[in-house]
Design a binder for these strands. Structure first.
Lengths: 251, 251
DNA sequence: CGGGTCGTTGACCGTGATCAAGTAACGTGG
DNA sequence: CCACGTTACTTGATCACGGTCAACGACCCG
């Protein structure tokens, strides 16, 4: 693969900063290998050795944590262009399970590759750092949603969040998007039950806020939705002014 | 300040890796300035310009996010030796409010200082990166707690988490620690109400799991507590094997 | 056609929220 | 010294959001 052919990852990262040569080369190295997984496959388990990171090429996945008694919390949803596995690089073992929400294609690469990034591509290192901490902000927002919002508000929040994330790579996207998660999975994202997700979805639909049709969601009243759950988009803007070298840009 | 006098921050970071010269110098630069804040002072507000990071020298603080209707979620508790503000460095504005839980002393330093770290001290950059992503794991654990645990379990979780964190810098600590948060604040951490925190605390005490006396908590049955909430310590171990240079150590 | 998954709907229940009153500890000023 | 406000915690009574259990229909695929 040519370092200048923009992969899904390069495209997502370029959205935030004009990448220098060293950075582009590193990214290309991340995507040398490809591996496919079927829907519901579990790429790794909690407790597995933790050697690789994964670039998502195609399809949605999610990471979840179990309680011993079977309760489950989905803690992150992964889309094409995301790098999966960062939270675990500080540990030798996986702390969550990674499962394919549909058929997916991943690019595994060893986390040891990162030391090269830190030594040779400080700009990319800074960008990865920025994305890692941004993820934390996104999780903070989710914490707030799960800790303090009603079921309806949480669903509104999730839909708006997904929409904002998908808009980064798909700039033409309007208000409709595919949602390849069933209601049990959604309930595990939001700390609810599948039954109550169903009821809340129906309620939102009756209120004219959204419309559903076979696996897709349309957000009809974005503004009202945003007011319901006090939504703020953390995805489109990133402050890169403190980055070293390269030609940092405000995206 | 001499780069080799171990500050609270240097001490915490050294716990994870043997720091090289460049790294120690950077750390010293972080702590040039000192500033005191009184209990309940708000160091910064949501929406403030976001120029500084802070090293905590003394006292507890917490970061919280508000909903418009007054509901509040505390998303992180900060202890001496922590660096506060990382989640926001990817943004130009603050996404949370930082408030002093008691009288505190902070060392503000400009986030622009980080570009030097990325260029000159790749080892420290990697460590900060590791700590940032570890934070994400800690938040994942909290998400799971708030999304899927009962009130009692959440309180058990919080107490064990605090204990594990305090043990990093205070290795002599046994089972008792000071808890300078009132029950309303605890309820805002755990997504409960102050009333129910009170009831759950009383219940845990009646069960013989903990004991309380004026602002301190003693964990009487650590093992049983851990089983209740399926606790795993994310604080003591860190995988530094992928770090560049320096002399990485497994702590 | 039969079996699977998924979403919906109903009836009932329980955890934890809400509202409210009461107590204890503390500092303040007279 | 006491009257006072304030803040923190506790306890009780009631309520509601969302959980639980169960039945049913739609759809898909073999």
């Amino acid at each position: 693969m040519n370092a200048h052919t923009k992969s899904c990852l390069a495209q997502k990262l370029s959205h935030y900063a004009e990448l220098d040569e060293a950075s582009l080369e590193s990214i290309a190295r991340f995507e040398r290998e490809e591996k496919d997984f079927a829907k519901n496959d579990e790429v790794y388990q909690e407790g597995d050795q933790n050697i690789h990171l994964y670039v998502v090429k195609k399809g949605w996945l999610y990471s979840y944590a179990d309680l011993k008694d079977g309760r489950r919390q989905i803690v992150e949803i992964h889309h094409p262009g995301d790098i999966v596995g960062f939270p675990d690089i500080a540990f030798t073992e996986r702390t969550t399970v990674l499962r394919a929400a549909e058929d997916v294609r991943l690019c595994p690469f060893p986390k040891k590759d990162l030391d090269e990034v830190f030594k040779r591509a400080p700009q990319l290192a800074a960008l990865l750092f920025a994305l890692a901490v941004r993820n934390q902000v996104i999780m903070i927002d989710f914490l707030r949603a799960i800790g303090r919002m009603s079921a309806r508000e949480r669903i509104a929040y999730l839909l708006l969040d997904l929409q904002a994330r998908l808009r980064i790579t798909n700039t033409t996207m309007t208000t409709t998007f595919r949602l390849p998660l069933n209601q049990t999975e959604i309930s595990d994202v939001l700390g609810l039950t599948n039954v109550y997700v169903s009821r809340s979805f129906t309620a939102l639909e009756k209120d004219g806020l959204i419309r559903r049709s076979n696996g897709s969601v349309e957000i009809l009243e974005e503004d009202r939705m945003k007011r319901i759950c006090d939504f703020s988009d953390r995805h489109t803007k990133l402050d890169t002014s403190w980055f070293p070298d390269g030609t940092p840009v405000e995206a």
